[in-house]
Design a binder for these strands. Structure first.
Lengths: 155, 155
DNA sequence: GATGAAATAGCATTTGC
DNA sequence: GCAAATGCTATTTCATC
């Protein structure tokens, strides 16, 4: 599953995770390769899927979503059909920013954003009616450590 | 807190969250503005802090981190001094990809990556010795819904 | 098999409107 | 916000180690 990465790849990954808003020439200087070589490396990293995408990360509050909550979900039933219905509901709700199946005390962990309490409640209600048996809501108060790059450096 | 955003800003934010790996000219065509105008808009979005940064998002497993876990933490003590020590420990551990103070059943929600079980355990032990009273670990099994853009479109 | 250097086309960015 | 202009950059090609 893991892709083979040499030293230069690791530096590129580190830098691109930190700040992808740079010219290829800057990157080239950074890693000590020619622009052409750097371009090839980066293309390969994208094609191999190690780099999934380049995206803008927003400040949720400034973008109009002052409420951010972790929602942990226990499903009422675990048959594939029930799960499928729940999955569809999750994917259809734009306020759900990410969702993962997990192993542990609960079944699914969600990250939900909302413009106000009413919108949040709407999401929670819909989850309840689409297969969630128990919902636990954790209101995000403050960032302790911001979204950080994967520590791809050699150990 | 929220920044004033008009229709064009919202389109730009939507597109940049989806794929920031495009030329300014492409973006301009997309929103129907001149390249210069588009550049100004994007610059303003970055300066205002709505756009925090442009980053590469990696596939954790392909980047060498097959283990990803949510770790919920209850602190042993809640005095500022104890919290500070815990915060420092969290910020110092590169395997902790993000961390948020939350309100609810627990105090802090972490996202942790590791190359193997030993590395994960090392993180958990360190958290325990730095103020965590109770740790609950949720192993991420499978992505139900991938990291998605904030739904900034007008309602 | 990947890198570097050179060349071209296209882009980012500025200025004046 | 637009249009035009300039200086750089992305990207290709080809030679090279």
């Amino acid at each position: 599953m893991a892709v083979k990465l040499d030293e230069v790849d690791l530096i590129l990954l580190r830098e691109l995770q930190e700040d992808a808003d740079r010219t290829n020439v800057d990157l080239a200087r950074l890693v000590g390769l020619s622009p052409a070589g750097t371009l090839n490396r980066v293309r390969r990293l994208k094609e191999s899927g190690v780099v999934r995408r380049i995206t803008a990360r927003l400040d949720p509050a400034k973008a109009g979503f002052p409420l951010q909550v972790y929602v942990s979900v226990t499903l009422a039933r675990h048959e594939p059909r029930a799960s499928k219905g729940f999955e569809d509901a999750v994917r259809a709700m734009p306020q759900i920013i990410s969702a993962d199946w997990v192993a542990g005390e609960i079944d699914v962990m969600l990250l939900v954003v909302a413009r106000d309490v009413a919108e949040l409640q709407q999401v929670l209600v819909r989850l309840s009616t689409r297969g969630a048996q128990r919902l636990t809501t954790l209101l995000r108060l403050e960032e302790l450590k911001p979204a950080s790059p994967l520590p791809v450096a050699p150990r």
